[in-house]
């Protein structure tokens, strides 16, 4: 780590999820992708009513149940046991994705391999001919929801940029991402590219830019 990183402490996964959770608005219908995005539900500020959608057919998904409250028939998209919020309902798969594609969800929060400055999203395959493609519901969420936020580490484990000028991995959707939350910063995707709207304490814009392939802009 360079000297400029010395005083800055990157957010851990829970803190990244908590940072994104602060920005969810009262009354929003929200889909959380698998991985770090799932953790967002644990950090919604108390008193703020948000309704969660799970692609396997729940509108009004609640938190993980205590072990004695598990319903073996009630799982989320990651096959984890969940509960129901009061007022929840079940949907079959075509209706569950109809409300996604139909533009009824306010927000989805997805993980990603790369996000480009034009909002392109890559999150389902590592190579052009990945023999184990994992699209799931991501392509439908990417084109269907009003806001698409990405929650991911700012760089790969070996230090390569994920916030890029142009995606090199296969695309999930073109020009769909509206905001990126990383362990170092929060970036809005705008007509002029990435705009830094938040940065962790102790990190300079120059140090953030050094870890980012795309050009960063100030608000």
């Amino acid at each position: 780590m360079s000297a400029t990183m010395a005083t800055a402490k990157p957010l851990n996964r829970a803190a990244m999820a908590a940072r994104a959770a602060q920005d969810l608005r009262e009354g929003w219908y929200v889909n959380l992708g698998i991985g770090i995005p799932t953790l967002v539900a644990d950090h919604i500020p108390s008193g703020r009513e948000v309704i969660f959608h799970s692609e396997n057919g729940i509108l009004g998904m609640g938190p993980a149940p205590s072990p004695d409250q598990v319903d073996p028939w009630l799982i989320n998209a990651s096959s984890q046991y969940v509960s129901l919020q009061p007022g929840a309902c079940f949907l079959h798969h075509a209706d569950s994705f109809g409300l996604v594609r139909g533009g009824h969800l306010d927000l989805c929060v997805l993980g990603a391999y790369q996000v480009a400055e034009n909002g392109d999203l890559a999150n389902w395959a590592m190579t052009e001919n990945d023999p184990a493609p994992q699209i799931g519901g991501a392509m439908d969420l990417a084109v269907g929801t009003k806001e698409v936020w990405v929650l991911m580490e700012h760089t790969t484990k070996d230090g390569r940029a994920r916030v890029v000028h142009q995606c090199t991995y296969p695309l999930t959707g073109r020009g769909v991402v509206t905001r990126v939350y990383t362990n170092l910063a929060v970036l809005d995707v705008t007509g002029r590219g990435f705009v830094v709207i938040d940065i962790i304490p102790g990190l300079t814009i120059e140090a953030l830019q050094a870890r980012t392939e795309a050009k960063l802009h100030l608000p």
Binding site: G98, G136, D140
Partner: peptide, 8 residues
């Protein structure tokens, strides 16, 4: 096939 497209 994307999941929503598969369902549809």
């Amino acid at each position: 096939v994307p999941q929503g497209t598969l369902a549809e």
